[in-house]
Design a protein around this nucleic acid. Structure first.
Length: 1013
RNA sequence: GCCCAGAUGGUGGAAUUGGUAGACACGAGGGACUUAAAAUCCCUUGGCCAGUGAUGGCCGUACGGGUUCGAUUCCCGUUCCGGGCACCA
């Protein structure tokens, strides 16, 4: 009987046959990944050495702070991206350095130590071990033999060393002594402090202004004075010039953390870590003269391949402004002061002057009858926190009683003291032009001071005219209102503002009324912290004078203490150390009790800030074990600088500025070989977690948020709602039953707390109340950390790597969502099955696999699929567009699978192409293809255009831009043929609608547009 | 307030930089296989309208204009979201 069975009947049958003939191995990612992790270690696959015969490529990730929460899925995003690039470069024949290490000093470990008494080193090392374990699972090509930890003595030896070098350097635009200068050498650089000391011995400060010496304040003294001073006084004076110096400066003091903070560690007036209030306080602190490098930091931005937004942020932070400094004499007094302005053209509109409350000038100019009022005001200002000052911009100020003389008009104008003028910028004194500066305007209105408009057509009755556009008038109001200098007076009327600025600058300079000046907003970095867990300073105090511990004695190791809090006398935690004194004679650290000895002195109690250790770590990776130098000449010359740096954009004004500064200093010393440390920078976006539910309370701007909290209850994980308003203190717990999925039981919420009785909830399409879930940074405190280990366990590292790249453009931030991960997993299975690997009885007793491939020549279709992929993937990797290369792999795999391709010439390059993305599966298949070396050492396939050439092209025909149909043409069809075909196509009359073809536009190989009318 | 980046289906996102908008993936719906589930495979999937159907038409890249034969792409204006700076003279 011949019964025709439906097609579906054959499917299981066929599957069975396959099963018996092939026993095609399943994609067993767990075994594969474990095997290759072991193999890579055993074979030292990722060990790198300097190799002059090959071109170097240096890939670097911003090293992580090993936090207690472990690695979350956001961390690997950047690491995977850089790993793909590193592996790709290696396949192209480059000698790739791809190291990893730990930024191991930090506040959380110290705070944990304070709470538990556990030494921060212990928790830090435990966290590092955990990080390492997690990183190893993902299959990165890191050369772990080069690992650095900032808290390791053999590492921070060089942090201390660099600090000492900065201490012993000053900065000037030109050398102080005429010296032979090499071709193209940077004249503006750090120089040994001895050069400056020699200068002082001979000249004092006479003529120093000609060399552009970077300094805290402008000092004047003679050679005699210098030579007559004792060691202490000379030391104090030199602090004004050293690149690392002890300075009495206003600092961001955070009482809750018991330490000072750098500007970039303060966000919106509170500490970046912990969100504690920060106040301004004058303290003696170590500082780095970062400002000396302002111009070079700015210029360098033009030479590096960073995103515009990061460059812009750095430009803002450096804040260059060109202007003029003008000397103002105080009437009826011999006191004078200097103001800084970028609007020199507005000298005729000055109606008052303003001093910063912190300026020492305030004391000098205040008249006796205003003394009380000024003192009261100063007291008020001091009582205000940084945060209050930032939020509250109401006009405050007080008249000093004195008058300043405008050198251009000769007018006497009142001098005020007001907090809107900052002591730290410019000279701490300004000339106020209310007509053309909104801040001066508000002040003038408040104190009822005159407002003189200086720009034609500018209406200043309601607000100031701040724009730098227009024609100048009232400058002077009348000819006798401009003071004569050497027979010349300033006249600006009729000029454009730009011209007027230039003319005023010239006038001021020519008649010695002031000088042209460039100011930078960039401040010197405060370099000491009152903490335990940081690099100790290699400094001791001899009769109050800071002395460097000799270089050969470095590192000065962090002393043991029994508690990590400040001492009872308020000294930093290092004050708890009992063995923390320097024996100068025997060159060693000794017990504090010996300080009475004439050769024994106390050691610095401050420690260095977080950015100290992270500023030059990329140099150390080049030569991590070197005991003689930070980096050997040979290693530095070979590796030069980082070619590709990957990390978060949140470091734009911190690490990325400090690092550039630090590197420029080391470049001046000849240690670093490139002026810029990081040639190309990629900022990976943040992978955020889902957390807060946010509501607005009706009729208010008050927002209330929930956090989802996972807690362990009776061995079962239960999600609970954690409620807080603005602060995390005193949380109120709610019941999870209020939320099911993302639908909210509003009545329950309303009953739960009075806060929500009037809450306005959002309705979705179905009329249900929904919660809008905020997307936030993943952090332990938000309980929204997604751990990569689970993904590796369930899908494998290759799937994780693929999926993280597939998620979207690398630079974009996005919330973590596992929903799509199956797609990548399925793809890898498909990719695997395309090779049909089977156990190979001839090797390892059948444990290894083999792939049945033929050496037959591939068909054109197979070659086309392959070469399309080579082209796409190569271009995408170069452009860091990994999210588009993964679809290309999917497409090629689908094409080749349906072509049932078994050609070695096609499948083998496929394995190499996927190796950077999914290294484990690639290694396994590479081995199964019969190779005995790692796929890492294969060669990147070369794209050949000729396999992509189409003999026919489909061109779309459009009428007035509306695409209607397509026509196939031979690839070499000429325009006349194409046009004729379009005109004569059977569908053309339908779209002509009786109109005339006015014009024909042919875009080669793409489209034909018929313009009709 | 100033500066920078962005807005594309139910979702993540593609689009050779001015030339077929929605690749690829997820989700959803339908089907095959299975006792069943998982896994796998196939089909449909921007919206609306017409048609039994093959198919055809209109609309559509935040909104409103403009340039162009043709605009997600370029220009002007508006709204919204994100980032940076923020009394820096």
């Amino acid at each position: 009987m011949n019964v025709r069975l439906p097609e579906k009947f054959f499917v299981p049958l066929r599957r069975k046959i396959n099963f018996f003939t092939y026993v095609s191995m399943e994609y067993n990612f767990r075994d594969i990944e474990k095997k290759w992790h072991q193999r890579w270690v055993a074979m030292q696959t990722y060990k790198v050495t300097e190799d002059e015969t090959r071109q170097k490529f240096y890939v670097l990730n911003m090293f992580p702070y090993p936090s207690g929460a472990g690695l979350h899925v956001g961390h690997p995003l950047g690491y995977i991206a850089s790993d793909i690039y590193a592996r790709y470069k290696r396949l192209q024949g480059f000698n790739v350095l791809n190291p990893m290490g730990y930024d191991a000093y930090g506040l959380p470990a110290e705070q944990y130590a304070i709470k538990t008494g556990q030494h921060p080193e212990k928790t830090t090392f435990a966290n590092i071990d955990r990080y390492r374990e997690q990183l190893d699972k993902i299959g990165f090509s890191f050369d772990w033999s080069r690992e650095v930890r900032t808290c390791a003595p053999n590492y921070y030896k060089w942090t201390q060393w660099a600090f000492q070098k900065m201490f012993n350097s000053f900065y000037s635009l030109t050398p102080l002594t005429p010296s032979p200068v090499g071709e193209g050498e940077n004249l503006s650089k750090a120089r040994p402090i001895e050069e400056l000391i020699a200068y002082f011995k001979n000249n004092g400060t006479d003529g120093l202004e000609n060399y552009g010496v970077a300094q805290s304040t402008e000092l004047t003294f003679t050679a005699e004075e210098w030579n007559s001073w004792d060691e202490k006084k000379q030391s104090d004076v030199l602090m004004n010039y050293r690149l690392a110096f002890m300075g009495e400066t206003m600092v961001n003091w955070c009482p809750a953390l018991g330490t000072v903070l750098a500007n970039d560690e303060v966000v919106n007036g509170v500490s970046e870590r912990g969100g504690y209030p920060v106040e301004q306080k004058k303290m003696r602190q170590w500082c780095l003269r970062v400002s000396a490098y302002s111009q070079r930091l700015l210029d360098g931005l033009e030479t590096i391949d960073w995103s515009e937004s990061i460059k812009e942020t750095q430009k803002n932070w450096i804040g260059r402004s060109e202007g003029a400094e003008v000397l103002i004499k105080v009437a009826d007094s011999d006191v004078d002061f200097t103001i800084f302005t970028t609007r020199a053209d507005t000298m005729f509109g000055v109606t008052f002057f303003v001093l910063a409350p912190e300026s020492e000038l305030v004391d000098k100019v205040t008249t006796p009858d205003q003394r009380e009022a000024v003192d009261a005001y100063i007291k008020y200002v001091k009582g205000r926190t940084e945060r209050e000052r930032m939020i509250d911009h109401t006009v405050t100020g007080v008249f000093s009683g004195a008058y300043g003389i405008n050198p251009i008009t000769g007018d006497k104008c009142p001098i005020y003291v007001a907090e809107y003028v900052l002591a730290g910028y410019g000279t701490g004194a300004i000339m106020a032009v209310p007509a053309h500066d909104s801040r001066d305007y508000a002040f003038a209105k408040h104190f009822d001071l005159p407002i003189i408009p200086l720009v034609e057509g500018a209406d200043v009755s309601e607000e100031s005219y701040d724009a730098k556009e227009g024609i100048v008038m009232n400058s002077p109001v009348s000819p006798d209102k401009s003071v004569m200098y050497d027979g010349e007076c300033l006249v600006l009327n009729g000029k454009t503002i730009k011209e007027a600025i230039a003319e005023t600058k010239r006038f001021v300079k020519a008649h010695h009324l002031g000088r042209v000046k460039v100011n930078y907003r960039l401040r010197d970095a405060i370099f000491s912290r009152q903490r335990y867990w940081g690099e100790p300073f290699p400094v001791y105090y001899k009769h109050g004078i800071p002395q460097m511990i000799p270089e050969e004695c470095l590192p000065i190791e962090l002393p043991q203490v029994d508690k990590f809090l400040p001492t009872e006398t308020g000294e930093p935690p290092l004050g708890n150390a009992t063995k923390w004194a320097w024996d100068e004679k025997n060159k060693k650290i000794v017990e504090n009790s010996l300080i009475d000895d004439e050769n024994v002195f106390p050691i610095e109690l401050y420690t260095m800030p977080g950015f100290a250790g992270s500023s030059a770590y990329y140099l150390r990776y080049m030569d991590p074990l070197n005991d003689e130098a930070l980096v050997s000449e040979k290693a530095a010359s070979y590796w030069q600088n980082v070619d590709l740096y990957v990390g978060g954009s949140e470091h734009a004004t911190g690490h990325l500025i400090y690092s550039r500064f630090w590197n420029k200093f080391l470049f001046d010393l000849g240690v670093s070989k490139k002026e810029e440390p990081f040639q190309k920078l990629i900022n990976q976006g943040m992978i955020q977690g889902w957390s807060s539910f946010v509501y607005r309370l009706r009729g208010t701007n008050k927002f209330v948020s929930f956090d989802l909290l996972e807690e362990q209850y009776d061995d079962a994980k239960k999600k609970n709602l954690y409620f807080y308003q603005g602060t995390e203190a005193d949380p109120v717990y709610a019941d999870i039953s209020m939320v099911s999925g993302n639908v909210l039981d509003v009545e329950k919420i309303r009953q739960w707390t009075a806060e929500f009785r009037d809450a306005e909830f959002i309705l979705n399409k179905n009329g249900q109340y929904i919660v809008s879930q905020a997307i936030e940074k993943m952090s332990k405190s938000k309980y929204n950390v997604v751990n990569p280990d689970d993904i590796c366990e369930n899908y494998g590292a290759d799937t994780l790597r693929l999926y993280e790249m597939f998620l979207g453009p690398i630079e974009q931030s996005k919330p973590w969502d596992v929903a799509g991960i199956d797609g990548c997993f399925r793809f890898l299975k498909k990719f695997w099955n395309m090779f049909r690997p089977t156990p190979d009885p001839s090797r390892d007793g059948g444990e290894s696999l083999r792939v049945d491939v033929t050496d037959e020549a591939p068909t054109p279709a197979e070659l086309k699929a392959l070469h399309k992929l080579i082209k796409k993937v190569t271009e995408d990797i170069e452009a860091f567009s990994y999210n588009t290369s993964i679809p290309a792999f999917m497409i090629a795999t689908n094409e080749l699978s349906s072509l049932k391709c078994t050609k070695r010439a096609v499948l083998e390059p496929m394995v190499v192409l996927i190796a950077p993305f999914a290294p484990h599966i690639a290694e396994e298949l590479w081995e199964a293809l019969g190779h005995t070396t790692s796929v890492c050492d294969a060669q990147w396939p070369v794209f050949n255009e000729k396999f992509l050439v189409e003999d026919t092209v489909k061109m779309m025909v459009a009428f007035n831009g509306k695409t209607r149909f397509g026509i196939d043409f031979p690839a070499d069809a000429d325009n006349a043929t194409i046009e004729a075909a379009a005109r004569n196509h059977e569908l053309t009359p339908k779209y002509l609608e009786g109109k005339q073809i006015m014009k024909v536009i042919i875009v080669p190989k793409r489209m034909i547009n018929l313009v009709i009318k």
